[in-house]
């Protein structure tokens, strides 16, 4: 029965399929099995590498004008058309570009429920129940998505234990969608500039967040990085404020780093940031807010003020 089916939107806008695609497929299998439905996976645009999506019962490959490289308006039109054919109970995507770009619109168009930033999902009775991360990860919301169609965008890593990468797809189903009404045209896809700064190769990173307060204080962190023989990195707000160039950014939209030591100064630990640094071997976090989510992933923490702490460290190691 289609109304019990689960659809996974496979997001591959550059490179290969990200881990989250397989995590969503694993969760989709679990939910579909509880509902008595099947799993569909949608691939839009270039279908290269689709063989790894064999965990789905049905793989749909949608080709058409303007669908590659990623084009939000064309993708929305193509996905919307296919979803109205499939009429599923649940659509799963990640909170990446496609999830944030399209799921709100797709859910609104079809009158479906939507939960964003989801970290857990289950079937309880006739309802879908989700747990979502709100307020920058400070609170969790358990919510009831009811017994009708729903969209869920999940935070990467949430269903890691269920990841289902299965090579080999029997019979992918080809679709064609040439939306004549597409009002966006591709201009360019730009890779990050090579700046000579490579925070992914550093053994130690001194990383600054909003708590650094302003551009003039970056110098203090730079000095600490120098005496520690470390690289200097930052979280999103520091980059958005223009206090450091983009090449220094750690997080989902920046670089993923795995240094031996990650010293987080004035970083609260938004999900976008944690995704980029949680695999560091040793994480030491300094934040005056004892409830900051960074302390959930850090091995060691302190609520000392970074402007008191950093000079003390410099004194100790002769800065």
């Amino acid at each position: 029965m289609a109304e019990n089916d689960v659809v996974v939107i496979a997001e591959r806008v550059v490179g290969g399929y990200p881990d989250v695609t397989f995590e969503l497929l694993g969760k989709a299998k679990e939910i579909a099995s509880a509902l008595g439905g099947e799993v569909h996976c949608l691939v839009v645009g270039d279908s290269e590498g689709h063989e790894c999506l064999g965990a789905s019962d049905h793989l749909h490959l949608v080709e058409g004008e303007h669908l590659w490289p990623y084009n939000p308006h064309a993708w929305e039109s193509a996905i919307s058309a296919l979803l109205s054919e499939l009429n599923p109970r649940l659509v799963l995507a990640s909170t990446g570009t496609v999830g944030i770009d399209l799921c709100g619109a797709l859910a609104a168009q079809s009158g479906a429920m939507l939960a964003s930033y989801v970290v857990d999902l289950s079937v309880q009775g006739s309802s879908l129940m989700a747990v979502a991360q709100l307020y920058g990860g400070k609170l969790m919301a358990e919510c009831d998505l009811g017994d009708g169609p729903a969209f869920v965008t999940a935070i990467p890593g949430s269903f890691a234990g269920l990841a289902a990468r299965v090579d080999g797809v029997a019979d992918p189903i080809a679709h064609r969608h040439d939306g004549a009404e597409v009002r966006m045209r591709h201009v360019a896809l730009t890779e990050p500039e090579k700046t000579g700064v490579d925070i992914t190769s550093e053994e130690v990173l001194v990383s600054v967040g909003r708590g650094i307060g302003g551009q003039s204080n970056i110098e203090l962190a730079q000095e600490l990085a120098e005496v520690l023989g470390a690289g200097l990195s930052a979280s999103r707000p520091v980059i958005d404020q223009g206090w450091l160039p983009k090449a220094h950014q750690v997080g989902k939209s920046g670089k993923k780093v795995k240094p031996k030591v990650y010293l987080a100064l004035g970083i609260s630990g938004a999900p976008e940031h944690l995704e980029g640094m949680r695999q560091a071997e040793l994480i030491i976090a300094c934040n005056t807010d004892a409830t900051a989510p960074i302390f959930e992933v850090a091995h060691y923490g302190t609520t000392a003020d970074l402007f008191d702490l950093v000079p003390e460290i410099l004194d100790l190691i002769g800065g």
Partner: peptide, 15 residues
């Protein structure tokens, strides 16, 4: 319009 696609990759479209 330029959008970020993650990992520092950006997409520019004309709309």
């Amino acid at each position: 319009v330029t959008q970020e696609l993650g990992g520092g990759v950006t997409l520019t479209s004309h709309a």
